[in-house]
Lab assay of single mutants.
Amino acid sequence: MEVRTIKVFTTVDNINLHTQVVDMSMTYGQQFGPTYLDGADVTKIKPHNSHEGKTFYVLPNDDTLRVEAFEYYHTTDPSFLGRYMSALNHTKKWKYPQVNGLTSIKWADNNCYLATALLTLQQIELKFNPPALQDAYYRARAGEAANFCALILAYCNKTVGELGDVRETMSYLFQHANLDSCKRVLNVVCKTCGQQQTTLKGVEAVMYMGTLSYEQFKKGVQIPCTCGKQATKYLVQQESPFVMMSAPPAQYELKHGTFTCASEYTGNYQCGHYKHITSKETLYCIDGALLTKSSEYKGPITDVFYKENSYTTTIK
Rank of each mutant, 00 (worst) to 15 (best):
R139Y: 09
A140C: 13
S246N: 00
I152M: 10
G220L: 01
G220E: 04
I105C: 05
F32D: 05
G228W: 00
N309S: 13
G267S: 13
L17I: 00
Q237V: 11
E162V: 05
Y84D: 05
A146R: 04
I152Q: 03
G288V: 01
D62G: 09
C225D: 03
A205Y: 00
E144M: 08
T116Y: 00
S294T: 13
K44M: 11
A150L: 03
G33P: 07
C112G: 04
F148W: 04
M245V: 00
D62H: 10
E71T: 09
S310H: 15
C285L: 11
E264N: 01
E144D: 15
V236R: 01
C271L: 14
A154V: 06
A177C: 15
Y172T: 12
R184T: 04
W94L: 06
E168D: 03
A231Y: 01
Q238P: 00
T258L: 07
V304H: 00
P248R: 13
T211H: 07
N61M: 12
S25G: 11
T312V: 12
A262S: 01
E144S: 12
L37D: 13
L102P: 05
Q196N: 12
Y306G: 01
E52C: 10
V304G: 00
T103F: 09
D23G: 11
D109T: 03
K316C: 15
T169W: 00
I45A: 12
R141C: 13
E168I: 06
G288T: 05
R184A: 15
Q222G: 08
C285K: 10
R66N: 11
Q230M: 14
K233D: 02
V3Y: 12
C193V: 03
A146L: 02
E144T: 07
K92C: 07
S50K: 12
N16D: 04
S240W: 00
Y214V: 10
Y269I: 15
T76Q: 10
G164H: 03
K298T: 10
F305K: 01
L17H: 12
Q134E: 10
E296H: 15
K95H: 15
Y311D: 07
F9I: 09
L133P: 03
P47H: 01
R83G: 05
G161T: 01
E162L: 01
K92Y: 05
A154Q: 04
V185F: 01
D135R: 08
C149P: 04
G39F: 10
V58M: 09
S171Y: 15
T260P: 02
A154I: 02
N89V: 14
A140V: 13
F9G: 04
F217D: 04
F32N: 07
L200S: 10
P97F: 09
G101Q: 06
Y274S: 01
T313E: 11
L81M: 11
G33N: 03
C156E: 04
D62R: 08
K106M: 12
Y252Q: 09
V21F: 14
Q238E: 01
T159A: 15
A69Y: 11
G39N: 08
L200E: 08
L118A: 01
L118C: 02
G33H: 06
M245G: 00
Y172G: 10
Y234D: 02
N111D: 05
E68T: 06
R83T: 06
Q197K: 11
T27I: 12
A69P: 05
A289M: 10
V203E: 06
T27V: 13
T11C: 04
H276Q: 03
E204Q: 15
K307F: 09
L283E: 02
S295Y: 10
I286W: 00
V243N: 00
K95F: 09
L88T: 03
H273C: 04
R4C: 13
G202I: 00
I6H: 07
T211D: 06
G101C: 03
M24R: 12
F56K: 04
F80W: 04
I15G: 09
K293G: 09
Y208S: 15
T43E: 13
G299Y: 00
L254N: 01
Y96I: 04
Y28T: 06
R139N: 11
Y265T: 00
E125R: 07
H176P: 02
I6Q: 11
D41E: 10
V99K: 11
N100Y: 07
L133F: 04
T27D: 14
V166G: 01
G29T: 03
S294Y: 14
S279L: 01
G164E: 03
D303N: 05
S213N: 09
G29H: 08
Q98F: 08
I223G: 14
N268T: 10
E168R: 12
S181F: 09
Y234R: 11
E125V: 05
L290D: 15
L254A: 00
Y297E: 00
I105Q: 02
L186A: 07
T76R: 10
T120C: 14
K54C: 15
N100W: 07
L200V: 14
H276R: 00
Y113A: 06
H273I: 04
Q195M: 15
A132W: 05
T91W: 04
G143P: 03
L59W: 11
T103L: 05
Q270T: 10
C227E: 00
N157H: 08
A40D: 15
H51R: 04
E144V: 06
V99N: 08
F242V: 01
H273L: 03
L59Y: 12
P249L: 02
C271R: 15
S104M: 10
L173F: 04
A140F: 09
V8Q: 04
G288C: 00
M244K: 08
H176D: 05
L186Y: 14
K201F: 12
A231K: 03
E162H: 06
D77P: 03
A140L: 13
K127M: 10
K307P: 14
Q196W: 13
L254G: 00
L283W: 03
Y274F: 12
T198W: 11
V189Y: 10
D165R: 00
L291C: 11
L186Q: 12
N309Q: 15
Y306T: 00
A247R: 05
I105W: 03
A146F: 03
I6V: 13
G82F: 13
I105G: 03
V8Y: 06
R83C: 07
M207I: 08
F217I: 14
A117T: 09
T258S: 12
P300C: 15
D180F: 07
N14M: 14
Q222V: 10
T282I: 09
T258W: 04
G228A: 00
V188S: 07
T278P: 00
C285F: 10
C261E: 03
Y113G: 03
L179Y: 01
D135F: 08
C261L: 02
L81T: 08
L200N: 07
F174N: 01
T314W: 13
F56I: 09
R66K: 14
E308R: 05
T159K: 15
I15H: 14
S246R: 05
F128A: 01
Y208I: 12
I124Q: 05
Q30M: 10
K275A: 13
V22C: 14
K293P: 11
T258C: 08
E239I: 13
D287Y: 00
T211Q: 06
I45S: 14
D38K: 08
Q270S: 15
D41K: 07
H74M: 09
E253T: 11
P249H: 01
